[in-house]
Design a protein around this nucleic acid. Structure first.
Length: 262
DNA sequence: ACGGATGTTATTAA
DNA sequence: ATTAATAACATCCG
């Protein structure tokens, strides 16, 4: 799940559950989930801290504490957060880190496939820079968007998914954006006019907004979206074309052979 | 049983 | 210097 809309949903979930709670104890159940910090240092740094605010950059959730470094989550392909109220016992399956609060509630960071990471970062700006992230897909201006894309060559699908160009789109939502914009995933950046890029920008914004509004739940997406039909051979929601699959390295791009001509 | 699944990174090749 | 492909990571699902 975790692309921009999913991570934004986790951010809001964190705000409505764990924000302003004091962390009493941090337990790391699988130390490989920690990036750049030992379980001991991670716990020692966070224990006694109270979360103040949150922000998101691309697929990263960042939590500001009352002092010290920020807490960062990246969800990989199968990560999620689950809040446990005071009297809830046990921990969910695939819990990798558990944050216990002073009021007895807990926040579990789950990750089935262990592709996600959590850790500490100085602040959002220095983190984005050191991670080589481009501007966030919801924050980037039209002008900046055109400039970032124009600086690249190659297929639009790969460029949209490149976190160093724009941060937030992954395999599913890059397909969704290209579907609504009517562009073939293999189309080269050099083939895009200024108007094409503006169109793409507006569609991207609209798709992200709607996906966030639907809390990134695939079953709640509009029926004319690609997401519910993202399977080879099925009918395109517009009824004219068929959904095709293309290989991009090890990933699959799904698109409509009628709505998205090369 | 096999292939595919939302991500990132290292390596290799073009 | 870019860009593209591949494998690896670990687990689940149909």
């Amino acid at each position: 799940m975790p692309e921009l809309p999913d991570v934004e949903t986790f951010r809001r979930y964190y705000e409505s559950t764990a924000l302003h709670k004091r962390i009493k104890r941090v337990e790391t159940l699988h130390k490989k989930i920690l990036k750049g910090v030992s379980p001991e240092d991670f716990a020692q740094t966070l224990e006694g801290r109270t979360s103040n605010s949150t922000m998101r950059h691309g697929k990263n959730l960042l939590v500001q504490m009352d002092k010290g470094p920020w807490l960062r989550f990246h969800f990989g392909m199968t990560g999620s957060l689950q809040f446990l109220k005071k009297d809830e016992e046990g921990i969910p399956l695939h819990t990798r880190v558990i944050f216990e609060h002073s009021d007895g509630s807990r926040l579990a960071f789950l990750c089935i496939r262990m592709l996600g990471r959590t850790g500490l970062v100085e602040d959002p700006e220095s983190f984005a820079k050191s991670a080589g992230l481009g501007p966030d897909a919801m924050e980037i201006s039209l002008k900046e968007f055109r400039a970032m894309l124009s600086s690249r060559t190659g297929a639009i699908k790969s460029v949209l998914m490149d976190q160093g160009v724009i941060a937030g789109l992954g395999n599913v939502y890059s397909d969704e954006v290209l579907f609504h914009a009517g562009f073939h995933p293999r189309r080269k950046i050099s083939q895009f006019s200024t108007e094409d890029l503006s169109h793409l920008y507006r569609v991207m914004h609209r798709v992200m907004e709607m996906a966030i509004k639907k809390k990134a739940e695939p079953e709640k997406m509009p029926s004319n979206w690609l997401l519910p039909h993202r399977k080879e051979g099925v009918e395109c929601p517009d009824g004219k074309g068929k959904i095709k699959r293309l290989r991009f390295g090890s990933r699959s791009a799904y698109y409509c052979n009628e709505c998205q001509k090369e």
